Computed example of a mutant assay.
Amino acid sequence: MTASNHPGPFDFDSTAQLVTQITAQLTTQLSHLGLSGARRGGHHPPPDRPPTLVAVAHGSRDPAAPRTVTALMGRVRALRPDVPVRIGHIELNQPLLADTLAALRGEAVVVPLLLGRGYHIKQDIPSAVAAAPHLAARIAAPLGPHPLLAEALHARLAEAGRRGVVPPGAGVVLAAAGSRDPDAAVDAARTAALLSARLGGVPVLPGYASGSGPTVPEAIRALAALGREPTAVASYFAAPGRFATQCAGAAPGIAAAPLGAHPAMARLVLHRYEQALTSAPLSHPAATVGV
């Protein structure tokens, strides 16, 4: 007895009919699948997604610090919604940078939310990236020095000054964290010069909360010796914290808020990200670029 004598769902008059039905079934099944074999509706990144931007904050016991970093990254996401953004901290706050990198796959650009060169830039961050060999990663330059920082510092001074950026005849201390690395002092001095130019030539001297001097009080006295009083203090910190509070407390006059989530900061984060993407191949992990 042949199959043609018993009609059924797989009973065909010819091989051509069999091929036609199989083709139809495959077409239906494939319509529910993506090119990678994943069913439609699944959460799978597009193949051309940009590398993840990993923002590296220092970390602080001040609860306002991680909130500020989160707000800044919110501005970054608003400017570039196509770029995946993650946060990692060097210490004190979660997630730590090592944990953030361990959870990622593919390509990443690590952007330090630090304002100059020093131990964290030269040692801590490259070591963390080297410990994540599963990633193809670049390390961007620190945020400073850059004219966008002078823009944000100018704006914070204007907010604190109310009737003007700084009073006539005043000077400004650029209050920074400080470092024993001489490159950090070079970077701070360059930012001080940029801010001075932004203020129309008002003298701006760096002062430090730690590391090699001058301290903020010493910089204030130096400006007073030049006849520059009162002195405004520009907070050269990415987020609130112990050093920022300490420096503000030393101010005899205006004390500006930290840079925080100022729009110029968000633009600068993306500038460093894009600068890193065009400066070195991802095949060279732990390469700090764009300094």
Rank of each mutant, 00 (worst) to 15 (best):
A188Q: 02
A188Y: 01
A188K: 01
R190H: 13
R190M: 14
A192T: 14
A192F: 11
A192Y: 12
A192R: 08
A193V: 10
A193L: 11
L194C: 06
L194E: 13
L194M: 15
L195W: 12
L195E: 06
S196E: 13
A197T: 13
A197P: 04
A197H: 10
R198K: 15
G200I: 04
G201P: 01
G201Q: 05
G201S: 05
P203L: 07
P203E: 12
L205S: 06
G207Y: 02
Y208H: 15
A209W: 10
S210V: 07
G211P: 01
S212W: 05
G213S: 13
G213V: 14
T215L: 05
T215Y: 02
V216W: 01
P217E: 07
E218T: 13
E218V: 06
R221P: 00
A222M: 15
A222E: 15
L223H: 02
A224S: 13
A225F: 08
R228N: 02
R228W: 02
R228G: 00
E229Y: 08
A232W: 06
A234G: 10
S235T: 06
Y236M: 00
Y236D: 01
F237Y: 13
F237N: 03
A239D: 08
P240L: 00
G241K: 00
G241L: 02
G241S: 01
R242K: 05
F243E: 06
A248M: 09
A248W: 01
G249C: 05
G249L: 03
A251P: 06
P252K: 08
I254H: 09
A255T: 14
A255M: 09
A256G: 00
A257Q: 12
A257S: 15
P258W: 14
P258L: 10
P258D: 05
P258T: 09
G260F: 01
P263F: 09
P263M: 11
